[in-house]
Write a protein that binds this DNA or RNA. Structure first.
Lengths: 189, 189
DNA sequence: GTCTATAACGCGATAGAC
DNA sequence: GTCTATCGCGTTATAGAC
C-alpha cells in the first residue's frame, strides 16, 4: 500500500488525462508535467505507457465480471437482476468515472491484454443477454428482439461515465433506482 | 462532384481509420498507405489532418441539427416526435457509421471548429430536452426526472454506430420502430 | 527517487523535381 | 498529382550522476 503509492498516483493522474484527450493523444511528457517530474522519472515506477492503460482497463473490466457473477448466483427474478446490474454500473462508474472513459474508448490500444479484455467483454455481454432471455421465458419481459433490448440497456449503462460526473450531488442509490425504472418501464405514461 | 473525388476518397478512407484507432493514433503515413500513395501527396488534396477531422464531424453534426429542426416544426405530439428522432439517428448512423465514431470520440481534437461544434451539440440537447418536457406537460410522458430520460435515450441513440454495422441485414425502418418502442415503452411486460 | 543527457525513431508538414 | 528528401519537433525508453 505504501510502496505502490507513487505508481498509484501516476495511474490516477494518467486516468484523468486519458479521459480528457484519449490514450494516444497523451504523451509521457504530459503525464510527467502533471506529476511535476520529468518524463524519464516515470520509468522508475512503471515499465511503459502501455502498462498504465492495461492497469486501468483490466481492473475495471474484472470488477464488472465479478459483479455480474455475484448477481447471476442470486435467486432473484430477471427484473430484479437487471435492477442490480444497473446498480453495479452506477457504483463502479461513480467510483472511477475517468477510468470508464478509457474502458470505453481506448481498449483497442491494449496490446498484450487485448485478447483477454475482449473475452471479458464478450462473456459479460452473453451473461447480460442470458438474464434478458430468462425474463422473456418467465413472461416478465416483453417478447421483443433481445438484441435491441440488450443494446439499449448496455449503451445507456456504458455511457454513465459521461453523465454521472456532471451530477455530483446526485444520490447514487436513488439515481440507480430512477434509471433502472426508466430502462425497464420506459418513459410512456 | 468530379473535382472533389480524390479529396472525398481521402476523407472516406480517413473516416474508416479514425473509427478503428481514433484520430490521434492515425498518422498521415497510415492514411497515405491505405490510399496507396505517399504521405506528402495527401497535401495536394487536403490542407491538414485537422481539416479532415473537421469535415467529418461538422457535416454530421449539422445533419443532426437540420434533422431535428425539421421535426420541431411538425405538428405531431411529443411521442411521435421522439419516434422521428429515433429514425433520424438510425438513418444518419446507417449512412455513416464510421463517421459517427469520430463525432462521438474525437470531437475534443477539433481546433478551429471546436466552439462551433460544442454549440451545435448543446443546442441539439436542449431541443431534445424540450420535446421531452412538452410530453410531460401534455401528460404523454411520465413525470420522472427529465435529465434521466434524456440521458438514457440520447446515450442509446449515440451508441448506434457501434451496434448497427454488425446487423447489416437489418431493415432500417423496422429496426427504428423496434428501438423507439423499447425506449418509449421499456422492456417490462 | 529524480535529475540531465541522449539514443533511436516516428510525427505532421513542406520544397522542389519530374 | 505523385514523388524524394528533408525540416523541426515529439516520442518511448535508457544510462549514469547526485
Amino acid at each position: 500500500m505504501k510502496r505502490d503509492s507513487r505508481k498509484t498516483e501516476i495511474i490516477k493522474t494518467a486516468t484523468k488525462l486519458f479521459k480528457e484527450k484519449g490514450y494516444s493523444a497523451v504523451t509521457m511528457r504530459d503525464l510527467a508535467t502533471a506529476m511535476g517530474i520529468k518524463a524519464a522519472s516515470l520509468y522508475n515506477h512503471i515499465s511503459s505507457k502501455q502498462e498504465i492503460l492495461s492497469d486501468i482497463i483490466i481492473s475495471l473490466a474484472e470488477e464488472f465480471t465479478y459483479g455480474l457473477e455475484a448477481i447471476k448466483k442470486t435467486e432473484e427474478n430477471s427484473i430484479e437482476k437487471l435492477k442490480k446490474i444497473c446498480h453495479l454500473h452506477v457504483n463502479i462508474t461513480a467510483n472511477n468515472p475517468y477510468g470508464m472513459a478509457s474502458l470505453n474508448n481506448d481498449w483497442m490500444h491494449l496490446e498484450d491484454q487485448l485478447t483477454y479484455y475482449k473475452k471479458l467483454r464478450k462473456d459479460y455481454e452473453e451473461d447480460f443477454r442470458t438474464v434478458i432471455e430468462e425474463g422473456v421465458k418467465t413472461n416478465l419481459i416483453k417478447d421483443a428482439k433481445t438484441d435491441v433490448m440488450l443494446f439499449s440497456m448496455l449503451s445507456t449503462l456504458r455511457s454513465l461515465y459521461i453523465w454521472l460526473p456532471k451530477k455530483e450531488d446526485v444520490k447514487l442509490e436513488l439515481f440507480a433506482d430512477e434509471l433502472s425504472s426508466i430502462l425497464i418501464n420506459g418513459i410512456n405514461k
